[in-house]
Nucleic acid binder design. Structure first.
Length: 275
DNA sequence: AAGCCTGTCAACCGCAAAGTG
DNA sequence: ACACTTTGCGGTTGACAGGCT
């Protein structure tokens, strides 16, 4: 069972959030804004650790969260971005408005990962697999799972910087790229808990104003940031930063961005991102 | 019908970067 | 420059629902 708690959590609630806790958290953030997660639970009257509050807010309570029903477009984009970025879920999530890294990660692990793996191995093992009984298949899958686990932990120990782009690594992205989605509740209505904890009654899609600002080729301080003449600037950025710096939203635009980015990754010469 | 197995997903964890004094 | 705190990240766990034997 689980690991030891990271901090003293004696007397604190754990596990699924109750509707009342959600309400307390929402009301507090509505009144005081995000941040100061460590002290937030105490001030909000919650018996939770700050980390837990932050996670709950970021992944489920935020007003701009879009949950469930991942569209084929999003599906496709996730696969493509994953092929470029690896398990950098937060970066992938930033390309999908309203989606969270946790949701994408779960979706990948339960749907896409398998699908991708399947299609990769289909050509190699289709004959073998088709002749297997269901039971045998299950056993094999289980063994494969264990094998994967072992391999991944072994990889953990031995991996170095050989694969730069695909190497998953927990860490923040560059400051200029940070897009906080907290914004405000000002333009929201009806974003209240529907009495069933995580399931908010209405699906609220909220695009903060700064997205439009970014889409208009400006950065946070309003300075011109990305334009044709400034490609040099983009080419100097690393892969993650490039994606981070470009707006999410429109599908065609995303495709363009993706292709451009792909070219960057494949590119040769001093500017190549893989060198 | 009952028990087992598997898939899904919310929540937890430790780690590391960024921020602060 | 350093130590400490805060925040954000990806990996992992465990409860639960539903399907299968």
């Amino acid at each position: 069972m689980g690991r030891a708690p990271c901090c003293s959590k004696v007397g604190l609630h754990r596990g699924p959030w109750a509707a009342r806790e959600d309400t307390l958290l929402i009301n507090y953030i509505k009144a005081h804004g995000e941040g100061h997660w460590r002290s937030l639970p105490k001030r909000a009257g919650l018996l939770r650790c700050g980390k837990s509050c932050r996670l709950r807010w970021m992944n489920y309570l935020r007003p701009d969260i879009k949950r469930g029903n991942i569209t084929p477009d999003e599906d496709d984009l996730i696969i493509r971005l994953h092929s470029l970025l690896g398990n950098r879920w937060s970066l992938i999530a930033k390309r999908l408005p309203g989606r969270t890294d946790n949701e994408i990660k779960n979706y990948w692990n339960s749907h896409l990962g398998k699908r991708v793996k399947k299609s990769e191995t289909k050509s190699n093992t289709s004959k073998k697999a088709s002749s297997m009984s269901r039971k045998a298949k299950k056993t094999t899958e289980k063994e494969q799972k264990n094998k994967d686990k072992k391999e991944s932990s072994a990889r953990k120990e031995t991996t170095t910087a050989t694969t730069k782009v695909h190497q998953p690594k927990a860490g923040r992205v560059s400051p200029f790229s940070v897009i906080t989605r907290s914004s405000s509740f000002d333009s929201i209505s009806g974003s209240s808990s529907s009495g069933e904890g995580s399931k908010l009654g209405t699906e609220v899609l909220y695009f903060p104003p700064y997205w439009a600002e970014i889409a208009g080729a400006t950065n946070y301080s309003g300075e011109a940031m990305v334009c044709d003449e400034d490609q040099e600037l983009l080419y100097g950025l690393d892969a993650a930063t490039f994606l981070d710096a470009t707006p999410a939203g429109d599908c065609d635009m995303l495709d363009d961005i993706f292709e451009e980015y792909e070219q960057l990754l494949k590119g040769n010469g001093p500017d190549s991102l893989l060198t």
